[in-house]
């Protein structure tokens, strides 16, 4: 008798599995405890007049606050773009066979990652005191064009330099990790086809590195959104400063801090949605079937319930 025949005893065909599920009493306890805590928190937020919700709502869409939101957003976008572009260059330099480039990139990362971004912002704002003029010309020799530092670096540029150059140091390490995560066989296959180093990087390595690069970059973007509040050091005015200004003027600082935080939360949520779709785009080819987007999932649920 073969093992298959032995296993298949006549007349005893096991049916569908109908087991008694395991009970989870711990879950019920957790529901009660957390439910009570949430109820207490909601109650205090609604009933305590110090939150001053009407005052928050009154100011949430006022001109200075909306201007602050806009400034925060575009500072974040531009600083992140600077960080990304410069970060890719630094990462490629660090991985290049040229020891001078490697050393220079290492030094940059060491310097900009090792000092507070707040200090860097102040330095860019006050660099005019250090160097009154900036000239283009022969090194150590004659100058062709000379600029006044204050006109070359107005506050907005100082804010962007401070944020963007600092971010580049972090992005460089993120991009480097992404490049290192790509299998060496990919580079070899590209070289064997006669592709140059730069073409291989652009067409083969970086697109694959993006899968690893995107999640921490989303993290960095959200972090940047909040770090922009430090540009007050320059000084340059964004959401938090404008909100606090209203709070100080009206002697109600606390509600304005909460209102600003809610704005940051709203912007973060939008960024997280964007990140989800970017991740999905770069998952192409690495998973057999792309996961459904939330919209597709909803639609699927509806069509299925219609069938029933």
């Amino acid at each position: 008798m073969s093992s298959v025949e032995r296993a298949r005893r006549p007349g005893s065909r096991p049916g569908a599995v109908k087991a008694v599920p395991v009970r989870h009493p711990g879950r019920w306890v957790a529901i009660v405890v957390i439910g009570v805590l949430v109820a207490m928190a909601v109650n205090s937020v609604v009933t305590n007049p110090s939150w001053d919700w009407p005052f928050q709502l009154e100011n949430a869409f006022s001109t200075p606050v909306l201007q602050g939101v806009a400034t925060t957003l575009w500072l974040t976008v531009v600083a992140m773009l600077m960080g990304l572009v410069l970060g890719v260059i630094l990462a490629v330099m660090r991985l290049s066979p040229n020891p001078v480039l490697t050393g220079a990139a290492w030094f940059y990362i060491w310097l900009f990652r090792g000092t507070p971004v707040y200090v860097q912002l102040i330095i860019w704002a006050t660099i005019g005191a250090l160097y009154k003029q900036v000239s283009l010309g022969i090194p150590f020799g004659e100058a062709f064009v000379t600029f006044d530092t204050r006109t070359l670096i107005p506050n907005v540029v100082a804010a962007l330099l401070g944020l963007g150059l600092n971010e580049a140091a972090y992005m460089a390490e993120i991009v480097r990790a992404g490049i290192l995560s790509v299998d060496e066989g990919q580079t070899e296959a590209a070289s064997a086809l006669g592709m140059s180093r730069l073409l291989t990087l652009r067409r083969i390595v970086l697109p694959q590195a993006m899968r690893v690069v995107v999640p921490p970059t989303g993290n960095e973007t959200i972090s940047m959104l909040k770090t922009t509040s430090l540009v007050v050091a320059v000084p340059y005015y964004e959401l938090l400063f404008n909100a606090q200004a209203i709070g100080t003027r009206t002697f109600r600082p606390f509600p304005m801090l909460i209102m600003a935080s809610l704005w940051y939360l709203a912007m973060t949520s939008v960024l997280m949605i964007g990140q989800y779709y970017i991740e999905r785009h770069y998952a192409k080819g690495s998973v057999r079937t792309l996961p459904l987007t939330p919209v597709q999932r909803l639609r699927q649920r509806f069509t299925r319930s219609e069938l029933r």
Partner: peptide, 12 residues
């Protein structure tokens, strides 16, 4: 032309 043991196709 070269063909590798592990194929090394570009997955993306």
């Amino acid at each position: 032309g070269m063909v590798f043991q592990r194929f090394n196709l570009f997955p993306h």
